[in-house]
């Protein structure tokens, strides 16, 4: 069964899943790196992103409504992010980690169960846009079009965010506010506002990830955010907290490792993620591409 085409397809699966996780992890990593907040509610932001797309698709009746829904979801998610930051997380900056965890975990439960109350617990269908159905030939093997597309789109978005943070003038302000808020303030930067918008950006990325992933999971349920959160979290830890390139690298490594484990010993595919995290933390506590010290 060791066909080269199957192995290649498996590598593709790993990368595809990894990129998707990296897309979510980018938001998580951004929020951690810039705001110093461990956001457990990130999984639920992913979940409401998917529900928003579904709602938009129900209300609209235009061709390509999936894409329209996805685009409408972005500002909606940013607004959700703004409100969360404005009313809750603002009081968490510089607070002990345990309080952040408790608060964001509480938020996760509230959002998840509110969605269950509003939308019900029956899975909601969100099929993929019909033009993206089917498979495309990639030389040696055939691969689903939609997956290939999300992979490319995900990579593009991650690159865009990286470019924005690391290369643009606005990104420099964000980085400055994260690294040295006092100096940034004296230079006239409204760090509060920068934090708020950074969180909104992270939320929008989570919502986008949710919307993109939704057609692949066969039915939206209010619990879809919890498992993905843990994986994202591990991706961030492996890649290095606050590093966008690290999130991408961590995501792809994790995707491939999971894939290999899935073929050889599937029950271990969840555990290998933790094992990878443990090993990396013991060898290189700041993560593969992390900047910080050992803390």
């Amino acid at each position: 069964m060791v066909n080269i085409d199957v192995i290649l397809a498996q590598v593709f699966n790993g990368i595809q899943f990894g990129v998707l996780m990296a897309l979510l992890a980018t938001g998580l990593s951004l929020i951690f790196g810039m705001l110093g907040i461990i956001n457990f509610a990130h999984g639920s932001l992913y979940m409401i992103g998917a529900y928003f797309v579904w709602t938009c698709m129900q209300m609209l009746n235009v061709p390509g409504k999936f894409w329209v829904g996805l685009i409408i979801t972005l500002p909606l998610m940013a607004i959700v992010g703004l409100m969360i930051e404005r009313f809750l997380l603002r009081w968490m900056y510089g607070q002990p980690v345990v309080y952040q965890i408790l608060l964001t975990f509480g938020l996760l439960l509230v959002i998840q169960q509110s969605v269950a109350l509003i939308y019900g617990t029956t899975p909601l269908p969100l099929g993929m846009p019909s033009s993206f159905e089917g498979e495309i030939s990639l030389g040696l093997f055939r691969y689903p079009v939609y997956r290939l597309f999300t992979m490319i789109l995900g990579l593009a978005i991650i690159f865009g965010v990286w470019y924005f943070i690391e290369r643009s003038a606005l990104g420099a302000i964000i980085r400055a506010s994260a690294e040295d808020p006092e100096t940034a303030k004296t230079l006239g930067v409204n760090t509060r506002r920068v934090y708020t918008w950074t969180f909104a950006l992270g939320s929008a990325l989570a919502g986008l990830g949710g919307g993109l992933h939704a057609p692949l999971i066969g039915g939206l349920q209010h619990t879809i955010g919890t498992e993905i959160l843990l994986i994202c979290f591990i991706v961030v830890v492996i890649g290095g907290m606050g590093s966008i390139r690290g999130a991408l690298l961590g995501g792809i490594i994790l995707g491939i490792v999971r894939g290999i484990a899935g073929v050889f010993w599937a029950p271990a595919s969840d555990f290998v993620m933790f094992a990878a995290m443990g090993i990396i933390l013991m060898i290189r506590p700041q993560g593969l591409l992390g900047r910080g010290g050992t803390r």
């Binding site: 069964m1 790993g14 498992e227 073929v263």
Partner: peptide
């Protein structure tokens, strides 16, 4: 027999394997 954890969110690995089997 492929055993998949109940918490899995992506089973593409198994699908590719099944397809190539």
């Amino acid at each position: 027999t492929q055993y998949v954890p109940a918490t899995a969110i992506d089973v593409s690995v198994f699908m590719t394997e099944a397809k190539g089997s």
